[in-house]
Design a protein around this nucleic acid. Structure first.
Length: 784
RNA sequence: GGACUGUUAGCUCAGUUGGUUUAGAGCAUUACUUUGACAGAGUAGGGGCCACUGGUUCGAGUCCAGUACAGUCCACCA
């Protein structure tokens, strides 16, 4: 529909009206348009780094696909699942053509609401009053409808009234559809000119009286004003109704009226025969598949929505008043008999069976096209030629696919119908998981759309920030199941991240310039010398486990955040600083540099799906030197276990807390970074400091470190958890600001202690809560 | 109008069967420090009646009901 609208627009700009060219000519233009803009979209996807199989692009109007769509239509028709039924369409009385919904422009209009009274049968002088904005349609009335509970009209139910002017007798019926508080509470039913009226008419078996011709003039069925234009008729009938005493009053009534985009005339709702799919015939397995989690939705909240829709499924109107698309394979003869076939020749053969003397020219094909989703719902099958060439190796290999990624707004249009088609034609689900992305909105919360023109220019953004940065910006702000409020500043974070990674590479490459020293340390020293390596290896394992969990739940932005933090905080801020050779040392331990590069490669692998370009580049930068190295293989082999070493991780935490605490104390005491200190550690367990001591000393610029059992006078105190540190400096320092901080900390802990004690002194809590919970509270108290 | 979903720091969001140190993260912001991987970095800080009102419970951001507001899809009213 969008394509057709765009092509129509393009032609109009060139001064060509759609109505002035043939169907085939129009389609030539449409194909040109498709090639051009389809190509642009593919280029953008490539520029974005989407790793798709570019040799296998597929289109629903490829010849094999087109035939399959027609084949499916024929198949469903034969099975009796497709039928013709009435539907209200938009009719352009000037162009004498049906319009798609997209071609109707609604304008706010100041209309009039006419209150008309209909005389009741038998009791001359008694009336029932209805309200309408289209008085000319009363000539097509089949009934008057009231709410069954409406006391005002209860006595009239089952009686009859006369249509004014033509005195046709119509019943007064009751239906809950009518709202009691609108208008007069009585509704005239005109099945031929209103969809709801039509449905009520079906329900109550009312006559359909079409009072309009296709040019908008009154038809023979109207009895009066025959041949007169609908709006002329409206003026005239109001005068006549007033003269006959039927007009009660006229009120102003603002409403929206649809105009044709093509001819700018008021669109006429018109009943027309359209093609439908009987959904109840095919929806059963598709409902169960999702309800039973055979197909999983992410986020799961859409499951409810899906179930509700499927349980109340309505038949699917598959006709569209368009030229661009799969043309409905139905042919009609002069009498309106239908012949559904795969092509004109076969339709003709069917026609011949009934009309042995018939000619090819006697039948003509349906002008309409199929709803775009009637082709799209075959996607998981026909992309692999699973319908046109069943059982071929590709469909057998790829079907069912694993994950469908799509937008929640097309859950019914596309997802549900693909599942139905999957069970109908493959007897199997088409995919295992469905991941619904957020809807992209701008900062003001508006949906991004072509018509609003509020979409950012992707290529321009890529030029400014880099494709990886743009991808990062999108992914980091795409929490599963929420809309994505697009803000260009997210790109900046991505760009800064790229910079950070690139600089980390620069640092590692600088180290490579140094003289390598092979295995500087012996077995006993290695836990200490390679603590940073052991720690990061453990962190890597730990984070990989977290990532597995995030991915299992399709929490993509969370996974990216985890990787971001692993690289920035753990790798750059901690690990690289820990292994960084001291200033002035021109050598480097070979194990350190190789481990670092292996970690770097591992990190690049983790990040690759999000930022493919920079990770690919760095992988190759590092790869030349890592590949083929025995130590690399040995290191990888040593990390078979997925369990991270928790004691190493604990030591890492202690080291981080110590560094942070001491640095904080240094800052508060306004020590210059270059000023060295003597560090004293007061701790309950000294053992870990054997391992982390060297790094600690380096990171806080200490000349010496000692374990002490008593406080050190005249030193700057620092605290990390239950660890105490004393920083001895050559110059005495003012510790006023630090004291303030510590007082605040103390206040907090006092308050905290109070709240815990309050809880523990509550007898009901101690009596009712689980013992573990009470124990935790007791531990909190002890710690505080 | 129907159905569904949401409402937690300035912004975007976590918070997994109610209890895990008197609510967390990223970004933004503030102060100080630093300039030997980093058009930056380090350290610290500020910022929340967890929409509102009731209820269940020893205990509620978490469960229940209602209200308000927002979003989405569907149907659109003579």
């Amino acid at each position: 529909i969008a394509t057709e609208a765009k092509v129509v627009h393009m032609l109009r700009e060139r001064g060509i009206a759609k109505s002035s060219i043939s169907r085939d000519e129009f389609l030539t233009y449409a194909w040109e348009w498709k090639e051009k803009y389809g190509g642009i979209i593919l280029q953008q996807l490539k520029k974005m780094g989407c790793s798709l199989d570019w040799d296998r692009t597929s289109f629903t109007m490829d010849p094999h696909y087109y035939e399959s769509v027609i084949g499916v239509f024929n198949d469903l028709y034969k099975k009796g699942y497709i039928y013709r039924g009435k539907r209200m369409i938009n009719w352009d009385v000037k162009a004498k053509t049906a319009l798609s919904d997209e071609e109707v422009i609604f304008k706010d209009t100041q209309s009039k609401l006419y209150f008309l009274r209909y005389e009741l049968e038998g009791n001359s002088g008694e009336y029932i009053t209805i309200a309408t904005v289209r008085p000319e349609t009363i000539l097509g009335d089949s009934a008057i409808c009231v709410h069954p509970d409406d006391e005002r009209f209860k006595h009239l139910q089952g009686k009859f009234a006369y249509v004014p002017l033509i005195k046709r007798k119509i019943p007064i019926i009751a239906d809950e559809y009518v709202s009691m508080d609108f208008g007069t509470g009585a509704l005239k039913i005109t099945p031929a000119h209103d969809m709801n009226d039509y449905q009520l008419g079906q329900k109550h078996k009312l006559e359909v009286i079409d009072v309009l011709n296709d040019d908008g003039s009154m038809s023979e069925a109207a009895q009066l004003y025959v041949g007169l234009d609908r709006f002329e008729t409206r003026k005239k009938i109001v005068v006549d109704l007033e003269a006959a005493g039927h007009l009660v009053k006229i009120e102003d009534y603002p409403n929206q009226v649809g105009y044709s985009e093509r001819t700018d005339v008021v669109v006429e709702p018109r009943l027309s025969l359209q093609w439908w799919v009987d959904m109840k015939k095919i929806s059963g397995p598709a409902l169960n598949a999702v309800v039973d989690d055979d197909i999983k939705f992410h986020p799961a909240k859409f499951k409810n929505l899906y179930r509700h829709w499927m349980e109340n499924i309505k038949d699917w109107c598959i006709s569209r008043q368009l030229w661009w698309g799969h043309r409905i394979p139905a042919w009609y003869d002069q009498e309106g008999h239908v012949f559904v076939a795969k092509d004109e020749e076969q339709a003709y053969q069917l026609y011949l069976q009934q009309n042995p003397d018939g000619k090819m020219e006697d039948i003509r094909q349906d002008e309409d096209c199929l709803d775009t989703w009637f082709s799209s719902w075959l996607w998981p099958i026909e992309v692999f030629k699973g319908y046109s060439n069943p059982g071929n190796p590709e469909i057998e290999y790829y079907y069912p696919t694993q994950t469908l990624v799509t937008a929640p707004e097309i859950i019914f249009f596309w997802v549900a119908r693909m599942i139905m088609a999957g069970y109908e034609y493959k007897d199997k689900k088409p995919f295992e998981q469905v991941y619904f992305t957020g809807i992209v909105r701008d900062k003001q919360g508006r949906k991004m759309s072509k018509s609003l023109g509020n979409s950012p220019d992707l290529l321009e953004m890529i030029d400014r920030y880099g494709a990886d940065a743009v991808r990062f910006g999108i992914m980091i702000s795409s929490p599963a199941g929420n809309d994505l409020l697009w803000d260009e500043s997210a790109n900046e974070q991505g760009r800064n991240f790229s910079n950070k990674i690139w600089n980390a590479l620069k640092l590692v490459k600088m180290w490579e310039e140094r003289t390598p020293v092979n295995y500087r340390y012996n077995e006993e020293e290695s836990a200490k010398a390679y603590f940073a390596v052991n720690w990061f290896e453990a962190r890597l394992k730990q984070v990989k486990t977290e990532l597995d969990q995030s991915y299992d739940q399709f929490r993509l932005s969370e996974a990216l955040m985890t990787i971001y933090s692993l690289i920035w905080d753990d790798f750059c801020s901690w690990y690289l600083e820990w292994v960084k050779p001291p200033y002035g040392d021109e050598t480097i331990d070979e194990k350190l540099i190789i481990s670092t590069k292996i970690f770097f490669v591992e990190l690049m692998k983790l990040l690759h799906p999000y930022m493919p370009f920079i990770t690919e580049e760095i992988y190759h930068e590092l790869g030349e030197r890592v590949d083929g190295d025995d130590l690399c293989i040995a290191l990888l082999g040593s990390s078979v276990s997925k369990e991270a070493d928790t004691s190493i991780l604990d030591h890492g935490k202690l080291l981080q807390a110590s560094i942070t605490g001491i640095r904080d104390a240094r800052n508060k005491a306004q020590l210059k970074p270059k000023e060295s200190i003597a560090l004293f550690v007061q701790t309950e367990s000294a053992a870990p400091y054997d391992i982390i001591g060297d790094i600690l000393v380096k990171q806080v610029n200490a000349a010496t470190m000692e374990i002490t059992s008593s406080t050190i006078p005249d030193a700057i105190p620092a605290v990390a958890g239950k660890e105490k540190f004393y920083l001895l400096t050559s110059t005495p320092m003012d510790m006023g600001s630090q004291k303030e901080e510590l007082k605040k900390e103390l206040e907090y802990l006092k308050g905290f202690l109070l709240s815990v004690e309050k809880k523990l002194s509550n007898e009901k809590f101690v009596a009712n809560a689980k013992t573990e919970v009470v124990d935790i509270e007791k531990k909190k108290k002890a710690d505080a």
